[in-house]
Design a protein around this nucleic acid. Structure first.
Lengths: 361, 361
DNA sequence: TTGTAAGCGTTATCAC
DNA sequence: GTGATAACGCTTACAA
């Protein structure tokens, strides 16, 4: 007699209990499975988790019992006991932004594949919101953090997250040395490709929409812009580089100012497609033709880039990849004791269209 | 002597214990707070939760103790005990899609405000993925579900979620009668506005890119298209309405077919901006000019719509609003016993630009 | 008004 | 090999 046959009637009683009442069936518990299989709860646990030595017969019996009862271990109870939740917190300044949404998708897919769930928090573009989000997440005992910071202070970060020992990988925006890992785009290469392309078209008076300097993608691109120009021996007048927020309107405003200059630029490098769209709006208002009056190139190759007028020359990359790689680093960190700190860069390429002057009549 | 003064040295001992070891401080537990305040755990619990009657003195003492120790109740333990997690599951076919990302943001913001966390799952465009996601979420004992289904079967839905009694509100795509609520766009109105605008421009041979009929936004728009045409007494030849998937490429392909017809359409209504972009690609290939050779109007007013060539006439709406409203309905359902089933429609408006022929020379 | 004890569903440390 | 038993951190009858 196998345990299951032996406890058959008990089994039936159990099954009935689980499907009783008005359809709101309470799902089977480990104790139920144990009883059904005729073993103790601890044995059932060991059998299901493959820990410890036990006879093949009982293991099989437990597994079969679990199958029959449709047993699903309670993550809550498990987490309470083991102090690990298999949940990671994901914090971004704005989930609705295409870039972060894509990163989220990449991360979620990777994490899901290795058994982690993602708890999402939107910092609503403020550092304060970010800190709240981190607090909440840590209080929920997430096993790890994926964070695109909007500029958290190092001391705050140490106090809130580093002190808990919860691994955190930064992506897109990096806080140097503070984490177990970081993932960002090849901002330097991308910006250089843009600048050099404009130089190759013969432009010398090149302006730059730099974006916010609170984030890595803003600051690294600005540095790269200056470096690229310097290396090719061109002098960029200070009034041509515009530090500004990431919004569309900001791009419009700054470009407007550029076009009103006594000597307006003949080329414009934009740090993001949002800003580039703003720049296009300003050009339209001023009646300056792209690319003839102003050659425009930008970071971010949006999927609609080819349908704009003119089609945009841009820096392309795989946005999901930054989320995915960040997840990979995080998983490594969560699983190994003493994780090594690593930094990954996601490759970028230049795609040329008409806005830079390529293929123009 | 207040309890705190009385147990001062104990308090110090406790505080020390909590900050011991290598910075990975184990946070204060309810028992710690109770000991610190010199009361039992149950009293501490009551004091902190404002339940039951207790003297103001002890309540204050407990609260002060909690403050001093930086006590944060463990959501895990609480959930295990109370069988409620204050977590809602959010399931979409594709988080990276701008529409779903926006909906997510709206929902997350609303839920966050009333104390719920969101656990995100991406169904990766498949019903199978959706079912997995729902299973996982329910196993985690989410208190509610926000679901943009890719076409789950009613029986499957009943079996998996309805049977658990977990409230679920559908958004974007609706499974009639299966849930406590549903939120969708005014698909009927939006489509009518589009069709009628083209009719007003004098077009009679109007084609339609219908999108996938597995989703509400596809099927409702198709029905509305036919209804709008019929009511104005125009006959639409069957070959002009194209049911297709939502991808860009699909729009290109179908438009290509339309343009190869012996009598190609003079107007085209697209069910989504993705499809419209595909249509624009096809037109470019065929050398047909927009809007002169073909007038194009579409659902979805993307933020770049004004910068396309030609700028797109489109149906605009607040995508975050569908997520937010869905969250509102869900919260109501989670909090009230016997929730009533409700359906909300998010308003849409027509914004005219050049692609329809408006403002053309 | 407050304390004791049971229990939520697991896993881990012991004995046997 | 397997089974009691004790946590994990909280809430809630029930007693006092």
């Amino acid at each position: 007699l196998t345990p299951i046959e032996q406890y058959g009637s008990l089994g039936n009683r159990l099954r009935n209990r689980l499907t009783e009442s008005h359809g709101k069936r309470r799902s089977a518990t480990l104790a139920d499975v144990a009883a059904f299989a005729g073993v103790s709860a601890s044995t059932a646990s060991r059998a299901l988790n493959g820990r410890g030595e036990l006879s093949e017969a009982t293991r099989a019996a437990v597994i079969e019992a679990a199958r029959q009862l449709g047993f699903q271990p309670s993550p809550l109870a498990r987490s309470l006991r083991t102090r690990t939740t298999f949940t990671v917190g994901f914090v971004v300044p704005d989930v609705a932004s295409p870039f972060y949404a894509a990163a989220l998708k990449g991360a979620q897919r990777e994490l899901e594949a290795v058994g982690y769930r993602v708890m999402l928090m939107d910092a609503e573009l403020s550092v304060e919101g970010e800190v709240d989000a981190l607090r909440t997440l840590l209080n929920h005992q997430v096993d790890g953090l994926l964070l695109a910071t909007a500029g958290i202070a190092p001391t705050t970060f140490d106090e809130i997250v580093a002190s808990t020992g919860t691994p955190c990988v930064f992506f897109d925006s990096i806080l140097p040395g503070a984490s177990v890992g970081a993932v960002a785009l090849e901002n330097d290469l991308g910006t250089r490709l843009l600048v050099e392309h404009l130089l190759d078209h013969g432009h010398e008076r090149i302006a730059f929409l730099a974006g916010s300097q609170a984030e890595t993608s803003g600051s690294e691109r600005l540095v790269a812009f200056h470096a690229a120009a310097r290396e090719r021996g061109v002098e960029i007048p200070p009034e041509l580089v515009r530090i500004c927020s990431w919004e569309h309107e900001s791009g419009r405003h700054e470009t407007d100012a550029l076009l009103k200059l006594r000597h307006p630029p003949t080329g414009l490098v934009s740090s993001s497609v949002e800003l580039a769209l703003g720049a296009m709006a300003a050009c339209r208002e001023h009646g300056v033709g792209l690319p003839d009056d102003l050659a425009l190139v930008t970071f971010d190759d949006a999927y609609f880039g080819a349908f704009l007028e003119p089609p945009l020359t841009a820096i392309a990359y795989e946005p999901t990849e930054v989320g995915r790689q960040a997840a990979v680093l995080l998983v490594e960190a969560m699983q190994s004791r003493e994780p090594e700190e690593r930094e990954v860069r996601i490759p970028v390429t230049l795609v040329t269209r008409r806005s830079c002057g390529c293929g123009a009549a």
